[in-house]
Lab assay of single mutants.
Amino acid sequence: LQLFIKTLTGKTSTVEMEPSDTIENLKAKIQDKEGIPPDQQRLIFAGKQLEDGRTLSDYNIQKESTLHLVL
Score class of each variant (00 low, 15 high):
residue 1 L to H: 04
residue 2 Q to F: 12
residue 5 I to F: 05
residue 6 K to F: 08
residue 6 K to W: 09
residue 6 K to M: 12
residue 7 T to D: 11
residue 7 T to E: 07
residue 8 L to H: 14
residue 10 G to F: 04
residue 10 G to W: 03
residue 10 G to N: 05
residue 13 S to F: 15
residue 13 S to N: 07
residue 14 T to G: 05
residue 14 T to D: 04
residue 14 T to P: 05
residue 15 V to N: 00
residue 15 V to I: 14
residue 15 V to S: 00
residue 15 V to C: 03
residue 16 E to M: 13
residue 17 M to V: 13
residue 17 M to L: 07
residue 17 M to A: 13
residue 18 E to W: 13
residue 18 E to T: 09
residue 19 P to N: 06
residue 19 P to K: 07
residue 20 S to A: 08
residue 20 S to T: 12
residue 20 S to W: 15
residue 21 D to H: 05
residue 21 D to L: 03
residue 21 D to N: 06
residue 22 T to V: 05
residue 22 T to Q: 04
residue 22 T to D: 03
residue 24 E to W: 14
residue 25 N to C: 08
residue 25 N to H: 13
residue 26 L to T: 02
residue 26 L to S: 00
residue 27 K to W: 03
residue 28 A to G: 09
residue 28 A to N: 10
residue 28 A to R: 14
residue 28 A to D: 06
residue 29 K to C: 05
residue 29 K to S: 05
residue 30 I to E: 01
residue 31 Q to I: 03
residue 32 D to I: 13
residue 33 K to H: 09
residue 34 E to M: 15
residue 35 G to Q: 05
residue 35 G to W: 03
residue 35 G to D: 05
residue 36 I to C: 04
residue 37 P to V: 05
residue 37 P to L: 06
residue 37 P to H: 12
residue 38 P to Y: 13
residue 38 P to Q: 13
residue 41 Q to A: 05
residue 43 L to G: 00
residue 44 I to Q: 06
residue 44 I to A: 05
residue 44 I to H: 09
residue 45 F to T: 01
residue 45 F to R: 02
residue 47 G to H: 05
residue 47 G to I: 01
residue 47 G to T: 04
residue 48 K to L: 12
residue 48 K to M: 13
residue 49 Q to K: 09
residue 50 L to D: 01
residue 50 L to S: 01
residue 51 E to N: 06
residue 52 D to Y: 05
residue 52 D to N: 11
residue 52 D to M: 05
residue 52 D to V: 06
residue 53 G to Q: 10
residue 53 G to E: 11
residue 57 S to Q: 13
residue 57 S to I: 09
residue 57 S to E: 12
residue 58 D to V: 04
residue 58 D to W: 13
residue 59 Y to F: 03
residue 59 Y to E: 02
residue 60 N to F: 09
residue 60 N to P: 04
residue 61 I to A: 02
residue 63 K to W: 10
residue 63 K to A: 15
residue 64 E to F: 15
residue 67 L to P: 03
residue 69 L to G: 00
residue 70 V to M: 11
residue 71 L to A: 08
